[in-house]
């Protein structure tokens, strides 16, 4: 298993953003669903080694992120796309992706080719030399994704990656997710159930810091059977049914 989480808790003062989560994920795309404030972003940041857990145990790619050397090995093999991309407005697309390729300690001889192919892969080939300040929100999302995948990560963490993308780009992005999931473990946080239905082999549903469902999208849809759960599609109804059950 590339992601092994046992009884993970993360507190911010008195608030428990993640409250005793246990989860495992192997290669493929795992969708992390849940309402706003469910703890998805905190869980992803913890997996990205950006913040440390308050308690519990994590192993990523068979290594312990609490140990300095192992954490460094994990980070070399990690791709992380946060919800809000912080960027340097004066950098071009290529410079930004290249900067992160170097920070990920890719061999310098491979960086130029990897950056060029990644920029093409996310559909920004014709914007390669454009300054980031001149790009639209959707293009910036693609830049964020490019820096996340430039090192061909074994573990890719994406926080609301389709937010701000138009429908055509969302469809393209889901195809990219499926492709990436064939070689790596991809954990994608979203509140759009259609993302999960079309791209994810497994889904974990979080609510109030806990994982209240973990299974396949079909199993989530089946949870709505025999209930009056609200929703326009089977997955949405399953989502609503599980949330209602966990809150009752």
């Amino acid at each position: 298993m590339n992601v092994e989480i046992t009884d993970l808790t993360r507190r911010f003062g008195r608030v428990r953003a993640v409250a005793g989560v246990s989860l495992q994920a192997g290669p493929g795309v795992l969708g992390l669903l849940g309402p706003n404030g469910a703890g998805k972003t905190t869980l992803l940041r913890t997996l990205a080694t950006v913040i440390s857990p308050s308690s519990g145990r994590i192993r990523l790619l068979g290594r312990d992120p609490g140990a300095h050397r192992q954490r460094r090995e994990i980070r070399r093999r990690l791709g992380y796309v946060p919800q809000n991309l912080g960027y340097y407005p004066g950098f071009t697309v290529v410079e930004f992706v290249e900067y992160f390729a170097l920070l990920k300690e890719m061999p310098p001889a491979t960086v130029s080719r990897a950056v060029a192919s990644t920029v093409e892969r996310v559909g920004l080939g014709d914007k390669a030399t454009a300054k980031l300040r001149t790009l639209s929100g959707g293009m910036l999302r693609r830049v964020a994704i490019a820096q996340g995948i430039v090192n061909e990560p074994e573990l890719l963490l994406l926080d609301e990656p389709t937010a701000g993308l138009d429908p055509e780009l969302r469809v393209e992005f889901r195809a990219l997710l499926r492709e990436l999931g064939q070689r790596a473990t991809v954990v994608v946080s979203t509140h759009l159930v259609e993302d999960v239905g079309s791209a994810c082999a497994r889904v974990a549903l979080m609510d109030r810091g806990r994982v209240v469902f973990h299974g396949t999208p079909a199993e989530l849809s089946a949870r709505a059977e025999g209930t009056n759960a609200a929703g326009d599609a089977p997955l949405e109804r399953g989502y609503s049914a599980v949330l209602a059950e966990s809150r009752s």
Binding site: A48, V50, H68, E73, R75, R76, P82, F100
Partner: peptide
Amino acid sequence: ADPAWELIAGTPATG
């Protein structure tokens, strides 16, 4: 001071 701190924090060069 660093707008990309969250991205940088997840890279091995950080430290």
